[in-house]
């Protein structure tokens, strides 16, 4: 395991040694974040200096931004381990113990729909698509609801797959075939939007929660392996929006102004 997975110091009374250990863990976490950021800094600096041959004009601002990025990333990873992962796992275990399939399905749909429908990245994409394709406010809202429904459905399918042990690759390959079948039928203007819609639906807070949920669920059912059965929820959540948006664009086409 890499250093960034170091668990935060236990909540026992802070003796001197605990404090030193906690500080060392923090230091390692900050170094880990700095290492993660290094490639971006190198790429930008190299292109700026070698290809464009320009010095950076607002170096102070860039440096300040980088300090914030490293600090933020460190806190994020730290909080994941003590907050988001346990919540997802506890929920998964509680559902497995309760053994109520309808509630689990309802939860999966609500989580997918609820986290996607208000997603700022999705609102930005639907607004941009509406502007470029000539769809009005009602069209944009319907597009947004379509994508949110798609993510809800994806999590339901994903949870059922974990429970029933369906192999993920048949679902994904079936999904790809559906995408290929829908693409020629859909209006040209919606195709690009549809393909990108899958990428913007999985936000940085939803992903760890979903991963913990899937792995926790697979881990608490006998005969399921967390690695083979626990992953795949995010993949489904990136695939169904493509199909749903292609169908949506076919059912509700807008007259596109060809630029």
């Amino acid at each position: 395991m890499s250093s960034r997975s170091a668990r935060p110091a236990a909540t026992a009374p802070a003796t001197g040694r605990d404090l030193i250990r906690a500080l060392a863990a923090c230091g390692r976490a900050v170094l880990g974040s700095a290492r993660d950021l290094l490639p971006i800094v190198v790429v930008i600096a190299a292109f700026q200096l070698v290809v464009f041959r320009q010095p950076l004009d607002n170096l102070l601002q860039v440096a300040g931004g980088l300090v914030l990025v490293v600090l933020g990333l460190t806190l994020f990873v730290f909080g994941l381990e003590i907050g988001l992962f346990p919540v997802g796992e506890q929920l998964a275990h509680a559902f497995a113990r309760k053994g109520s399939l309808p509630w689990l399905v309802a939860f999966a749909f609500a989580l997918g729909f609820g986290t996607t429908v208000a997603e700022p990245a999705l609102i930005a994409v639907t607004a941009e698509a509406g502007r470029l394709a000539g769809g009005g406010a009602a069209w944009q809202t319907a597009l947004r609801l379509t994508v949110a429904t798609a993510v809800g459905v994806a999590l339901v399918i994903g949870v059922l797959r974990i429970l029933l042990g369906w192999p993920i690759h048949w679902l994904i390959i079936g999904g790809y075939l559906a995408v290929m079948a829908c693409t020629p039928l859909a209006p040209e203007t919606i195709v690009g939007v549809a393909y990108d819609a899958g990428g913007v639906t999985t936000s940085t807070i939803t992903v760890p929660l979903t991963a913990a949920l899937g792995v926790g669920l697979a881990g608490s059912i006998r005969g399921r392996s967390p690695l083979v059965d626990g992953f795949g929820l995010i993949a489904l959540a990136s695939l169904t929006p493509i199909i749903f948006v292609l169908v949506f664009g076919t059912v509700w086409p807008v007259a596109a102004p060809v630029p």
Partner: peptide, 14 residues
């Protein structure tokens, strides 16, 4: 709860 607050704060700073 502290963990979730840390995640949110970290993401905002990031």
């Amino acid at each position: 709860l502290v963990g979730i607050a840390t995640v949110i704060t970290g993401l905002a700073i990031f």
